[in-house]
Design a protein around this nucleic acid. Structure first.
Lengths: 347, 347
DNA sequence: GTGAAAGCGCTAACAG
DNA sequence: CTGTTAGCGCTTTCAC
């Protein structure tokens, strides 16, 4: 059993391969008669051109450059490195060259600089984890003018120029955290939403998460819970948190909207504050240990590794097989506790 | 910029493409001198043969037949249909033909029959969801003798003949359920493990889940919880469960080891039994509604859709690009509550 | 309008 | 041992 080829169709229709090709690609210059005959045959057979043969001519090298915050400054991004390396190995033989670039999560300048640098290298496409909203918009615009495709992941920016976004619904993610918090804290207690961020540049995520979190509790008979927000830089975290906590009483839980939960754990521990449930984000090694010890109750997994890998895969398959890229892929919001943890990291 | 080809290397080494090919594939019949020269060049360049061109010759049609329990008899398998259809559409143009076959989850005969039928059709490979252990082993053996590759998913069978397995660690899955149950039930209460199964043929899964569940509680100061097991067929479920529940007191939770949780919900509701927490498996529509209403606290997602899709993808990529198939892929054990539910199903 | 032919990268058969 | 050649399915060019 073999696939029908252009040759088969040509023979059946009594025309040449060239004519069949012209019909398939609607290049015109085909007689009415031939057109009808071939079209009919194509439909009957449900002909599918062989995408492999089609791209044989394209012995191009496609450069895809990945741009993320430096994992040494924020270990959240660590898993992306592995993911990129996997993709490099997997796609090398197809002529896909993937390179990884870092910018400092605390410096919009470094972000702009690295992207300008990449602009000059003119790759085929860029996969971007954009922290800085305003700067990202303009960076994307530059790529666009240079004819370089841009996909984003983790953080969404509102730009028509972006080919594809891979990430999570952060509002919903906040609701998930709220649901869990609701489950493990007593009524009539106080819950704190804690934003920890260096520069407040990525405040957008945190805001969406907070909205979702509050939205959930608003739907409950929520008068029984008091919810307050603490927004603070890493530097001031220690002092501010302690002061904040002391100003309250009956605190049963803290929802940390970033991966920096472990910092909160350390502070609580230092000050011998117990019986406060913690929910935060991401499977950093620092967090993992606390999760295992049940000091952190739940982590929500944002899965940067899969985000990166999917973002890359979409681009690659588009280049190689003309596969359409889906505009948006929202990953599941994984709830992780001490027991299903291993199933997410041994992977 | 373009990829290095066999032609480039031949030119550089001052030999013919044929010779380079012989070196690459270690076919011998190459002079020492040529061998060294070419080998060195290949390494220097880090030459990767173009897998696309390589398989151009193979204008075969690869049939992959998928065999699952009939979703009309057990809706757990429903999502596999979608998955198979997706794969059909995605791989059609590559000459991959995928077909779906059902057997009755209550009849070993139908299982054997359908597999014999498939054996006669001699496809390239079979992707199998094996419910019946003993029968599966022999079925796999038959395929093996006929030179048909077999991958399995969802249920593991211990056979060296199986190319690949996609599924979950069920022991760990039981532990996850236990951890959650522990979190939402009070100490000194009684918890029930409930196995619901028509024929007890797939008892293996349920046993592994039970082991994990008990293992977790054994690690806790577990004397405060009483855990007992009820094993029952669907038919007898109603009566048996009621009798069982009446024989106990202070029941705080039921862990149902299959997707049939919704049946338990209905029984509890009928009998006006409240305040019993429920944890079960799988995002059946029947279960989903109860999860949303918070009557079921958690569902563990076994993700049959992804299992099927991955199983198929591995085979396809192996056939088309000689990609190695990983022997075992353990999927994450997803914890689903009313809030992250949508992120798993809108997908 | 149309067919013939070359070529993409790789493999395999064949002739030397 | 080695080079040449044909051919996989598709596209593109060129001559008629």
């Amino acid at each position: 059993m073999k696939k029908h080829t252009i040759k088969d169709i040509a023979k059946m229709a009594g025309v040449s391969k060239g004519t069949v090709d012209r019909v398939i690609h609607k290049r015109g210059k085909v007689s009415q008669k031939a057109l009808e005959k071939v079209t009919k045959l194509l439909e009957e057979i449900d002909y599918q051109p062989n995408p492999i043969a089609r791209n044989l001519k394209n012995n191009k090298v496609y450069q895809i450059y990945v741009v993320i915050p430096n994992p040494e400054e924020d270990s959240f991004w660590e898993p992306c490195i592995k993911s990129v390396n996997d993709a490099i190995a997997e796609f090398k033989s197809f002529g896909i060259v993937i390179k990884l670039f870092f910018y400092s999560p605390n410096s919009t300048k470094s972000f702009k600089d690295i992207n300008n640098e990449i602009l000059n290298l003119s790759p085929y496409a860029v996969l971007l984890a954009p922290l800085f909203y305003k700067e990202s918009i303009s960076v994307v615009k530059n790529y666009q003018s240079a004819g370089i495709k841009v996909s984003t992941f983790n953080n969404q920016i509102d730009s028509k120029q972006v080919v594809s976004f891979v990430g999570q619904n952060l509002f919903q993610s906040g609701r998930v955290a709220a649901r869990l918090m609701h489950m493990i804290t007593p009524k009539n207690s106080e819950i704190i939403i804690c934003h920890i961020d260096e520069t407040f540049n990525n405040a957008l995520h945190m805001q969406q998460k907070e909205k979702g979190f509050r939205d959930y509790f608003d739907e409950q008979n929520h008068d029984s819970y008091t919810i307050s927000t603490l927004s603070v830089s890493q530097e001031n975290l220690y002092k501010s948190l302690i002061t904040f906590l002391k100003s309250k009483q009956n605190i049963s839980g803290i929802f940390v909207t970033t991966s920096k939960v472990y910092k909160v754990v350390e502070i609580l521990r230092d000050n011998n504050l117990k019986n406060i449930k913690l929910i935060g984000y991401d499977l950093l090694t620092e967090n993992i240990d606390f999760l295992k010890e049940d000091i952190i109750s739940f982590l929500i997994h944002q899965n940067p590794k899969t985000q990166t890998y999917l973002g890359l895969t979409y681009l690659v398959e588009h280049f190689l097989f003309d596969k359409e890229i889906q505009n948006q892929k929202l990953l599941p919001i994984d709830i992780v506790n001490s027991e299903n943890l291993s199933s997410y990291i041994e992977n």
